[in-house]
Design a protein around this nucleic acid. Structure first.
Length: 787
DNA sequence: GTTGGCGTATTTTTT
DNA sequence: ATACGCCAAC
């Protein structure tokens, strides 16, 4: 676990350093230098992938320091992730020496959480406010739905949460929202929204949106506070500007208003967070917003080979809404982009694993050079399994991050309560975990009492003796909980945060709960909780402000992308998480209709364009090798689904793509001229060479992997002959759509579809026009795989 | 008040 | 397939 370094506040200044200045400018090309030197007035750097965007921004900050144009405390840089902030901080330090104390570098969220810590009390938030993630917010929303009798028939809590978040992103107040809400879902959201806001405020809690909105409120209501920050920050920098939302835009405007020195960097073609409220018009209309802005375009790509860039260009050309940019590179053409086609997600995973091992052995690439990208987190599983099986080291970025695991959230809940007992959502989380006799009914009575008197849940707990509806037994149970929290709350000032954590976690019974039964999961959870404590110890040892409340706020803003990834491992992550990163070898997996582009996103043009930009982002992560992969079938909701190739594969520039067999990519747009067979049932297997699969296995240049695979196939054939072993066993020779099989009675056929698993698995097999489709129970049918 | 079983929705991406 | 919520039994 890592925390964001906190810099001291005292203004320090550094003398102009001509040597550093030279070093800073020497590391740049002409255009980049131009951007760095434009230190007066608004600047927009529009830059393609791999053009040294962040590098330019970093050098600009270093340049400001080295020339003495700005003192460290006069600079703020807002990044997209904490990790990017950390790296930028480190690089600036490297360029100008260690003199960056007082400079603010961080995400919008963490930077303005800090502002709120300093000045939030002016709008009614104590500095120990809790930060609520989506989970905590959902709890509040559910509770409010319950209280206000909003039925879940019309909308799910999640749906309401999204609607409210959207409204907040657009800075629509509850009152305003009530007047514009249309339809059942929005009406429901309009009812919940004000109650939700009130509940958050009462709990001294903020959700992610609040971390941007409350500072705006603060600036609005206290112009002196705004002025303080405006005068302080003479230079405002924003990275990944295309992904800022409206509130972030307003914050930027507010800060830049005094000095007009706003420098933004972005690429409209890489805008992939609209679903989260990112507003692409921020970057598209920058020049309108800041009429005297300097615009610099960085169009030379240093990252990728010519072919990768040509492919990327062909992807993005399909989109209509673009700022003009001509990407070019001096790099070699490089290898062809390889198209990989597989029969199933397991097959896909195996092929990816084999390619990785092959390149690792033959080209000497290290494991850290590889990244496997996919659209949804769920896709990591089969790939993980394939890599694990062959002992290829890997790491998965994302999924369920450390701090979101249940045991961690439970432990954190106790810690949050020490700091902020009014944090109702977290009381509810742990008031009866581990079970201490405070069940549903007691909690209900507590809540009723609180509602009746306008208390928070905690205030009700403090007055538990006065609640007539409770039995003595219940009162005692509640009292012991109250005592537990109060005891440590009073020690919070005097006791180091890590000791505090250790003790309350133990006394609350979390650790013994996890040791109750000795499953492997529980052991892991127990270790995770221990890791949390040592993480707090690290924080205490290294932070300028080692209070528990700061730790909790920072931890809430950490993301999977902030995890350490320095080890030499293959990296698995979503396409979203890959933004800003680069790897010599990149696989984009799961290029299938319905998956990428995602089914829901394929309907609206806007959404489809975002998916396409996502594909563009993924492809441009690659430096040397790019693999595009899709599978003919995939498990979803426990059923095997037949898939067709993604439309994206029909759009790309086929000149730079080669299939696994070395052939050209057969695209829909080319099909008309070459073949006229098309005909019936065209959705099935056009262009599939039935021998492709096995030939490829043999082509594996005699490496252990392909031999292993062949062995497995043989074993299947033998066993089916013997009739004892089941042939549908996953991961052996799979019976999946597209496979050719032989049946003792019907002869040769091709599997069309497979349903069910295990004993119940059935396959639809087409045995030619005479026999047609047959539905067979795999358990009895004894199908033999022949290709 | 707690536990276990069954039915249902769920997977888009994330600060 | 799995996690969660709701209901019935202990």
């Amino acid at each position: 676990m890592r925390q964001i370094p906190i810099q001291r506040e005292e203004p320090t200044s550094i003398d102009p350093d001509p040597e550093a200045e030279k070093r800073i400018l020497d590391g740049l090309n002409e255009r980049q230098r131009e951007a760095v030197k434009a230190t007066d007035g608004p600047v927009m750097i529009i830059a393609g992938p791999g053009s040294g965007k962040t590098r330019t921004l970093t050098h600009r900050i270093a340049y400001l320091l080295a020339t003495g144009k700005a003192k460290p405390h006069e600079i703020i840089a807002l990044t997209f992730t904490n990790k990017a902030a950390r790296e930028m901080q480190e690089r600036v330090q490297k360029l100008v020496g260690d003199q960056t104390k007082g400079m603010w570098v961080g995400t919008f969220h963490s930077s303005f959480a800090r502002v709120l810590r300093i000045d939030g009390e002016k709008i009614g938030y104590s500095r120990d406010f809790s930060i609520y993630d989506t989970d905590d917010s959902k709890r509040i929303i559910k509770q409010q739905m319950n209280r206000l009798n909003v039925s879940t028939d019309d909308v799910s809590p999640r749906g309401i949460q999204n609607l409210i978040s959207d409204a907040k992103n657009r800075m629509v107040s509850p009152e305003k929202y009530a007047s514009v809400a249309r339809g059942r879902a929005q009406d429901a959201a309009a009812k919940i929204y004000p109650a939700y806001e009130k509940a958050l405020r009462k709990a001294n809690a903020m959700d992610f949106d609040d971390l941007l909105l409350r500072p705006l409120e603060l600036f609005d209501e206290h112009p002196d506070v705004l002025e303080k920050y405006q005068t302080r920050w003479k230079y405002v920098h924003i990275d990944e500007y295309q992904d800022t939302n409206h509130a972030q835009y307003m914050l930027a405007r507010n800060l830049a208003d005094a000095h007009d020195n706003l420098c933004v960097v972005g690429d409209d073609a890489q805008s992939i967070y609209a679903f989260r409220g990112a507003d692409i018009t921020n970057i598209l209309s920058f020049e309108k917003d800041f009429p005297d802005a300097t615009t610099v375009r960085l169009e030379q790509n240093y990252r990728s080979t010519g072919r990768i860039l040509a492919l990327a260009d062909s992807i993005i050309k399909e989109n209509d809404d673009q700022l003009d940019k001509e990407l070019w590179t001096e790099n070699d053409d490089g290898e062809y982009i390889a198209l990989m086609e597989s029969l199933s997600e397991k097959d896909e995973a195996k092929k990816i694993e084999r390619r990785i091992r092959d390149l690792h052995v033959r080209e000497g690439l290290s494991h850290g050079d590889f990244a496997v990208l996919y659209r949804t987190n769920a896709q990591s599983r089969p790939i993980e399994e394939a890599l694990r099986k062959e002992n290829v080291p890997y790491q998965v970025i994302g999924g369920t991050p450390f701090y979101q695991r249940k045991e961690i959230k439970d432990a954190l809940a106790y810690l949050r309560l020490i700091v902020n007992p009014n944090d109702t959502a977290n009381i509810q989380r742990v008031i009866n975990y581990p079970t201490r006799g405070i069940g549903r009914k007691t909690q209900e009575r507590l809540q009723n009492f609180a509602n009746k008197h306008g208390f928070t849940l905690w205030q009700a707990i403090e007055r538990v003796e006065d609640i007539d509806t409770l039995s003595t037994r219940a009162k005692n149970a509640v009292e012991s909980f109250r005592f537990l929290i109060a005891k440590y709350a009073s020690k919070a000032e005097s006791m180091p945060a890590d000791e505090l954590a250790q003790e309350i976690i133990r006394e609350a019974g979390l650790l013994s709960e996890l040791r109750k039964d000795h499953t492997r999961e529980n052991l892991m959870r127990w270790e995770n909780v221990q890791d949390l404590v040592s993480g707090i110890a690290d924080f205490v040892a290294s932070s300028d402000d080692p209070s528990l409340s700061v730790f909790l706020q920072e931890i809430a803003l950490m993301t999977s992308q902030d995890e350490e990834d320095d080890a030499d491992q293959v990296t698995l992550m979503t396409l979203h998480a890959s933004k800003g990163l680069e790897y010599p070898v990149v696989f984009v997996a799961g290029l299938e209709e319905g998956l990428f582009p995602l089914e829901m996103a394929a309907k609206e043009k806007q959404d489809l364009e975002e998916e396409r930009r996502l594909f563009y982002v993924g492809a441009t992560r690659a430096e040397e090798y790019l693999f595009l992969s899709w599978a003919r079938s995939r498990y979803r909701y426990g059923d095997r689904e037949t898939k067709t190739r993604s439309r994206f594969l029909d759009e790309i520039n086929s000149d730079v793509v080669r299939t696994a067999g070395g052939g050209e990519l057969d695209q829909k747009k080319n099909r008309f001229k070459s073949s006229s067979d098309g005909g019936s049932d065209s959705s099935n297997y056009d262009g599939v060479d039935p021998h492709y699969y096995r030939r490829n296995l043999r082509d594996g240049s005699g490496s252990g992997a392909s031999n292993g695979k062949e062995r497995k196939l043989k074993r299947i054939e033998q066993s089916s002959g013997g009739g004892r072993r089941v042939v549908y066993d996953e991961g052996q020779g799979e019976i999946v759509p597209g496979v050719r099989v032989e049946h003792s009675k019907f002869g040769e056929g091709k599997v069309q579809d497979v349903e069910g698993r295990g004993e119940k698995a059935t396959a639809v097999v087409y045995f030619g026009s005479d026999i047609g489709n047959k539905k067979l129970k795999l358990k009895y049918a004894r199908l033999r795989i022949i290709g």
